[in-house]
Amino acid sequence: MRIIDLSSHIDASAYEADPVTHEVLTAAQGAEHMAEQLKARLGIEFDVSVLRDSEFLTLDRISLTSHTGTHVDAPSHYGSKTTYGNGIPRHIDEMPLEWFHNPGVKLDVRGHGTGVIGVEVLEKEFARIGYTPKPMDIVILDTGAAEHAGTQTYFTDYTGLDGPATNFLLDLGVKVIATDAFSLDAPFPDIVKRYLATKDESVLWPAHFAGRDREYCQIERLANLEALPDFGFTVVAFPVKIKGAGAGWTRAVALLDDWCSSES
């Protein structure tokens, strides 16, 4: 079995719409920090010079949103109310883990430019690969956006799904839709420009807002999709268990059996 990493980096040096800060305490600084905490909290004096090289442990302090890097959007990210269930969307820590360990299907939707694609594009891709997603399959959109990760272009130039295309996948029983782009919807500037030109409210974040009527999750900001075959692999993307959060980071991977590896 091969394990293919589908996750993008969390990198404080890269361009982010919401900047990341990453402070590293060295092993020497970690020793001083530990000694200070022992004294302040427990009244214990500790001489760090007894440690090898006067070093203890490193420590990373990171400030970022739950939508930085590869992450899973929970239903509560889409809004505060639903038309299904009890009307209250579930947070990321409440989602069933079974959703995030399932067969994957990759759809090549590169070359469609900035904006949205519809049902006809998905149907054409199903015909090309000779496979239609089954219930609980994880559908991955390869938009080509990952090649711009770390730049401003990554947030402004990519392809998203329109409302009918999103619902088309959900009608097939799909519970998780994934993309290598910043969002499953089109870029913010594209959405707003189209709305201002048409006053058509259906263009306003249709993929996300579909989640107010139908429970599903998105995985955004995948990477390395070129290493995947069209289907015949398993996606594992368990989200971090953040209490009451609308999203959680994931180290998404694909598992390929030997027979699949040889065919790819």
Rank of each mutant, 00 (worst) to 15 (best):
S54L: 00
D47L: 07
G113I: 07
E32I: 09
R110L: 00
S76F: 07
D108R: 13
R41N: 13
E94H: 04
G30H: 04
E45T: 14
I177D: 03
T68V: 13
D257W: 02
C260L: 00
L122M: 03
Y15C: 05
T26F: 07
F56A: 13
A27C: 11
E123R: 11
K193F: 10
S76K: 02
H112E: 10
K241I: 03
G30W: 09
L256H: 04
E36W: 00
L59C: 15
I117C: 10
K134D: 05
D213E: 15
P103F: 01
T82P: 05
D190T: 12
G244Y: 00
T198K: 07
G85P: 14
M1V: 03
D73F: 15
G144N: 13
G160S: 13
G163K: 14
L122Y: 04
T26K: 05
W259D: 12
Y216W: 13
L204R: 06
L204W: 13
G248S: 12
A165D: 13
G104T: 02
A252F: 06
E201V: 13
I4G: 01
R110A: 09
P96K: 03
D60G: 01
F188R: 02
F126R: 00
S261A: 02
T198S: 14
R41L: 12
D93N: 15
G246E: 08
A181H: 01
R214G: 11
A207R: 06
D171V: 10
K193I: 08
D11L: 09
T83K: 11
L172D: 10
F46A: 08
M1P: 13
S63W: 00
D137V: 01
D190K: 12
D60K: 03
D11E: 06
R90K: 15
S7Y: 04
G173Q: 02
F209S: 15
T151R: 06
G150E: 09
